[in-house]
Design a protein around this nucleic acid. Structure first.
Lengths: 240, 240
DNA sequence: CGATACCTTGACCACTTTCAACGTCCGTGG
DNA sequence: CCACGGACGTTGAAAGTGGTCAAGGTATCG
C-alpha cells in the first residue's frame, strides 16, 4: 500500500476543516478526533483500497483526487465516484470494501482507524449526523450520474464532466478572467468515469476546443472561453 | 395526487415490519410511530411526488412498486431507482424532491408527515441508525447500477434486471419448481430503467426466450427455465 | 365491439467503439 | 545534455450495437 505518514497538521489549520466529516464538530469533539487521526499520502496511481479488502480505516481526502471503481469479470471498468478534497472514504459498519479506491493524483488523507472512529460516531451525534448528510449527498450525486451514463451523448457527457469539475472545485470567474482548470484524470480514467472510450473522450474535447468553448494550454490544463456554451452543452435544464 | 386513506393496519401485523425503517424500533418506539402514521394508496401510473415538489411526507412502501425518475430538458428520461416493499421514500432534512416518484403498480404507502417524522428521528436513535443503513445500502445499489448503465450490453442489462427482480422479491426455487415472476413495469419503464429503448427490451426478452432461458406465459409473467444461464448472462462475476 | 395502451418485428441508420498508426511529453540514464 | 523508452494522447477508417422509424399484432376496459 506504500503509504507514508507525514507530519501532523492541526485540525484548526486544515484546509477541509469546514467541509469534511468534522465540519460540525465543536472544539472538544475536534480534540478527540485530533487524537486518533493520522495523515497518510499516496502517490498518483497507487491503490488505496481494493475491492474485497478488509476496511481497516476511514478517511477524509485532504488533498488530491481518488477514484472509486468497479470491474466486470472480463475487465470492463466503471468509475462510480470521484473523490475530491473533503470527501469521505470508507464505510463505518462494513467489513469489506465493495469498490477499488485508487489515487488518481498524489493524495493526502486524514485517516482514522475504523474501530476508534466507530466509537467516536456512537458517542458524537454531531459527527454521525454529518455522515448521514454526506451519504445522502453522495446518493443524490450517484443518481445524477445515472442519467448521464444512461441518456447523455458523448459530447454532453464531456461538457457535464467539465462543468462538474468547475463546480466542485469552487472555481469562480473573477472579473472577466476565464476559469482555468486542471484535469485530475487521464483520458482513460475520464473515459471510465463517463462510460466512453479514451478515443471518444479525446475527440469530444478536441471538438469543444474547435467550437471555441475551451482552449487547452497543455493536455492537462485548459481555459474555459465560453462558460454559457459549456453549460448549454451539458443537456441539463439548469446550471449544474 | 388522488390518494386514498385506507384502514389502518397494526404495525405488528405489517408485512414489512421487520425490513423497513421501523425494523429496529422497539415496542415503545413502534407505538409512537403508529400514532403518526397513515396508510395511503396510489393507483398504477399515478405520480406520488414530482421533482421540485415540496416534500411534505416520507413513507415506506408496504405493497406495490414505484419508480424514482429524472428527466432531461428535451424529454429523455432515466429511472434511477426501483422502490419495492420496505423501501423508503423521501428525504428528511430536504425541502424539495430531486426526483419524480411514480406508482408503477398500485402502491400502498405507510406515510409520515415530514415534520413529526423528523422529530421522531431526532429523539429515536434506533430509527435514525436504521435510516443511515438504508441510505448506505441505496448508495451501494446506485453504484452497482452505474456499471450496468455504463458498461453492460443490452442483453446483460436485461439479464441483470430479471436476476435483480428475482433476488429482491426473495423468490426461491422450491423443489425443482421454476421461479415464476411478474414484471412490475411496462417495457417502456424497463427501458427507462436500463437506458435502452422499449424495442430493444422487447427484442432481448424474446432472445432470452428463444435461447430457452425463460418462457413467457403472458407479457407480464414468465418462468425461469435456466437460472444458471440467466446468471451467466448478467456479465457479473458473482451471483447477483 | 371499438378504442387505447402495450408489445413485437423488420429495415435502415447513426453514434460510439474498435483497430491501427502516429505524435507528444517527460523522466531516466548514458 | 541528449537520447531513449514508456506512458499518454490524437486522428483516421471500418465495424457493430443499439436507436429510429414504421407497420402490424394483442390485450384490456369501457
Amino acid at each position: 500500500m506504500n503509504q507514508q505518514i507525514v507530519t501532523r497538521i492541526k485540525c484548526k489549520d486544515c484546509p477541509i476543516r469546514h467541509r469534511a466529516v468534522c465540519s460540525t464538530a465543536d472544539e472538544t469533539e475536534l480534540a478527540s478526533m485530533e487524537q486518533i487521526k493520522t495523515y497518510t499520502t499516496h502517490r498518483a496511481g497507487e491503490p488505496i483500497l481494493w475491492r474485497g479488502d478488509e476496511i481497516k480505516f476511514v478517511a477524509s481526502i485532504v488533498d488530491g483526487v481518488a477514484t472509486l471503481g468497479q470491474t466486470l469479470e472480463d475487465g470492463r471498468t466503471q468509475v462510480v465516484g470521484l473523490m475530491l478534497p473533503s470527501d469521505f472514504i470508507g464505510r463505518p459498519g462494513r467489513e469489506k470494501s465493495k469498490f477499488d479506491i485508487v489515487a488518481s493524483t498524489d493524495v493526502t488523507l486524514c485517516r482514522f482507524e475504523r474501530k476508534p472512529f466507530e466509537h467516536l460516531l456512537a458517542t458524537t451525534p454531531h459527527i454521525s449526523q454529518r455522515l448521514v448528510e454526506i451519504a445522502l449527498d453522495e446518493l443524490d450525486a450517484a443518481r445524477d450520474w445515472m442519467i448521464l451514463l444512461g441518456r447523455k451523448t458523448a459530447s454532453e457527457k464531456i461538457a457535464t464532466f467539465l462543468s462538474m469539475l468547475i463546480k466542485r472545485q469552487h472555481i469562480e470567474r473573477i472579473d472577466g478572467m476565464q476559469p482555468r482548470l486542471a484535469l485530475p484524470l487521464t483520458r482513460e480514467k475520464i473515459a471510465d468515469y463517463l462510460a466512453l472510450t479514451l478515443e471518444t473522450v479525446s475527440r469530444q474535447m478536441t471538438a469543444l476546443q474547435r467550437a471555441g468553448v475551451l482552449e487547452f494550454t497543455d493536455r492537462r490544463h485548459f481555459n474555459v472561453l465560453d462558460m454559457d456554451a459549456l453549460r448549454r452543452a451539458t443537456g441539463d435544464d439548469e446550471p449544474l
